[in-house]
Amino acid sequence: MRSFGTHGLACLDENDPAAVALFLQAEAERVDTLLGTQLDGFTSAYRRPTGIWRPLAAIPGVTIVTLAFGTNVFWNSANSPYVAVTGGSLPALPGNLPGSYHIGVMISTTPAGVATGSQHEVVVNILDTNGNVYGTGNDATSETGTGGEFLTCSFVINVPVSAPNVPRYISATWNETASGTNTINVASYCWATYLGPSIVSLEVS
């Protein structure tokens, strides 16, 4: 029995022309392995690691606060070594995979007092295990009367998870000037989804 090419498909050779049963078994097992690899790849692409989190409860108005997204709304990385977020902790990037992630946040607030002219900002940082900032996205607006604010931001970041001192946590910070006070509603949320592997190439001049 011989095998051919990069896929290693089986083939009878001149020394075993009668070994048809053995050939059919070898070919079936090789095809089974090859198609299994393809199916795993497509399944992984279809079910890309994704997480969505909300605050545990409304957050009273303060001028600056790091938001604890403690309620896990969705998490599909069952095989990830990172556990789903637990109460009060920062969400971990789903998947534990090196590559590009799309990360975002929406903040919904209810004004607690007269706040016209107050400046509001949400800043999203990706932190490594030592708390160092790896990447940042933000959105800002000024208070415009009653009715509360809605801020959103999203950004794409490359995460070399396999490197030492890796980034892997999502930290969102709310800032506002002291003239305004907003309660951050539980309708606020943040999310992250794995886009796929990325290759960082060195530019040669």
């Binding site: 969705f74 975002g104 929406m106 959105d139 607006t141 000024s142 415009t144 009715g147 809605f150 959103t152």
Partner: peptide
């Protein structure tokens, strides 16, 4: 309302994008 963005400039097109908060 699931995803929203408030602004105060009429001359700017308002664009929001993101994952929705519910499955």
């Amino acid at each position: 309302v699931s995803l929203a963005r408030k602004h105060d400039d009429i001359s700017v097109a308002s664009t929001i994008s993101g994952i929705l908060a519910t499955v």
